[in-house]
């Protein structure tokens, strides 16, 4: 397992890696424009949106050891909130963004209240099933495109301004969201609340004996993660200007787990690194062959069998050695 919570934040890689990442991400649009690679800005915007979703999953998966296999549903619900609002001619982000987060949070509250009554494999399968429920429900919304999805004919506005219209502005807004979520979650896992969550992960019975109610703490973490994933979904809808049930498919939930594990669980910056690595790998391999999954599948198996700690642990090891 990873180093105890809080230790990561205090030691070297816990500060250095996020700082370096922030500087690199902040510099990217300027470099991309100079090198005439403006598509890179668009691609990295998408990567950072998924990084936000992966961050939220790391809170419950990495710190809480809740293996949620339905996390894409929250992203999809956030996206659909924006899409459905746009279908009713509601474009004001100051209304729709909180709405998206609330909708995802509400879904997390209801499904979490049932799922968290169970443990282990049951929890994995139930979250998977609830994710599928959201997927099929979205597919049956014939008024909002059904299976085919819903095309938005404009992007969200904020108090009359259209910040998502410009690529670079959109990029920096997403970066700000990512940084904001990161700082928030860092503070959360270092707080008393975060320590209780980690304590339940290590020894549920003992936490109960000390007088905490693990169920309520886990449910709160689950809802927070759902709301942040909903934010990612709202951004994703604006990025693609399109929402579709495929955002909620169980493969997408699997992708998010891969991102978190690939980067190293329970570190937060690992989730960001994992999202970058996974989507870059997908991008790179799919240039190489349309059947990139035939390469990625075995690669994933090898990673699970032989490289357990993820990219984050490699960095940490490199950092402490050098």
């Amino acid at each position: 397992m990873s180093a105890p919570v809080g230790v990561v934040a205090a030691t070297g890689s816990g500060r250095v890696v996020p700082a370096v990442l922030l500087i690199l991400l902040a510099a990217l649009p300027a470099v991309a424009n100079a090198a005439d690679l403006s598509f890179a800005t668009l691609l990295m915007t998408r990567v950072m949106i998924y990084a936000i979703a992966a961050l939220s999953l790391d809170l419950i998966l990495g710190y809480g050891a809740m293996v949620s296999f339905g996390h894409a549903a929250f992203v999809g619900i956030g996206a659909y909130a924006i899409g459905i609002a746009s279908a009713h001619d509601l474009w004001e982000g100051a209304i729709t963004f909180p709405l998206a987060m609330l909708a995802a949070g509400l879904f997390a509250l209801v499904t979490g209240a049932i799922s968290l009554r169970t443990r282990g494999v049951y929890f994995i399968m139930i979250t998977l099933a609830f994710g599928q429920m959201a997927y099929f429900t979205a597919s049956s919304l014939s008024e909002y495109g059904g299976d085919d999805g819903l095309t938005m004919w404009a992007q969200t506005e904020f108090l009359g301004a259209e910040p998502f219209g410009d690529r670079t502005t959109f990029y920096y807004l997403v970066l700000a969201c990512l940084a904001g979520c990161f700082v928030f979650l860092r503070a959360l896992v270092a707080s008393r609340f975060g320590r209780v969550i980690a304590g339940v992960r290590e020894n549920r019975l003992r936490m109960q004996a000390v007088g905490f109610n693990p169920y309520l703490y886990q449910l709160a973490a689950y809802v927070i993660a759902g709301m942040i994933a909903g934010l990612a979904g709202a951004l994703l809808a604006n990025h693609a200007e399109f929402v579709s049930p495929s955002y909620m498919s169980w493969q997408r939930s699997g992708d998010l787990i891969i991102m978190v594990v690939l980067g190293g669980m329970g570190t937060l910056h690992g989730a960001v690194l994992g999202a970058i690595a996974y989507l870059m790998l997908e991008e790179g391999l799919s240039h190489f062959t349309e059947h990139w999954r035939v390469i990625f599948g075995p690669l994933l198996i090898l990673i699970v069998l032989y490289a357990r700690g993820g990219l984050g642990s490699l960095l940490r090891r490199g950092g402490s050695d050098g």
Binding site: L61, V67, F69, G120, V121, I124, G254, I257, I258, V261, H291, W292, R293, V294, F296, G297, P298, L299, L300, I301, I303, V304, L305, R308
Partner: peptide, 23 residues
């Protein structure tokens, strides 16, 4: 291994076989 490892590795098998069948 723990269940998370099993989920990930067998997910890798799914990716491989779904795509392999397509090929």
């Amino acid at each position: 291994r723990d269940h998370l490892d099993q989920v990930l590795a067998t997910f890798g098998v799914i990716l491989f076989l779904n795509e392999g069948v397509r090929i």
